[in-house]
Amino acid sequence: MKIISSYSIKGGVGKTALAVNLAFAFHETGRRTLLLDLDPQGAAAFYFRVGNAKKLNMDDSRTIAADLRKNIRESDFPGLDIIPSNLAYRHFDVILNGMSKSRKQLRKVLDEFRSDYDTILMDCPPNITLLSENVFRASDAIMVPVIPTVLSQRTLEQLFSFFRDEELSCDMLHPFFSMAQKINKMHREIIEELPQAYPGFLKTVIPFSVNVEKMGIRRMPLLAYSNNCEAALAYRSLCNEIISITKSDPHS
């Protein structure tokens, strides 16, 4: 089982779009996939027409896992399940905190799902909290959407330095370009230069596409309704990159 998270300090960069479409792409490869929506806004679940989760009742990693399990919703696509978000996740931090201040607590929780899924994808809210630190320590790979702008460079550097300060492995961080516009000269230049400073930078570039925006109207992953457009192909290629980086095994 591989755990992959979609994370950025910045909001509105395409984290949820990534989580939703990557989950779909993983499911297309036959991997049993779970999408865990950790953002209280609940956008990821919304794209699957799934409502909010019931209240969680958290004491320790076992009961958290059991409570999460009760909230699993089967998506319309067999083999792809979702745990929708819950406003109580705001308190996830506090609970994890109360549990032993361990930053590895989430990993323990997710290990309970090892026999059920080949891939777990997490869609995270844009901030650094105890929850996000748990996410970092639980993940096999952290994918970071970067809009090719100067400001994004700064936030990416902030993330890397946070990792260095906390003695987290920077190797897990995999930035990639999101909402890239070829006609934009600045975009082109940043796409050219920025990856050289970061060895884990992924090759695939997700283009800006109205098809992606339409997800809100269609209420399903882009890959489910626009199978062959440029953005859809890019999400699949991103999926393949991350499969080979994490050495994810196909479902037997």
Partner: peptide
């Protein structure tokens, strides 16, 4: 008839 509920439903 067989009704197969989706998990969670």
């Amino acid at each position: 008839c067989r009704v197969t509920p989706l998990m969670g439903y």
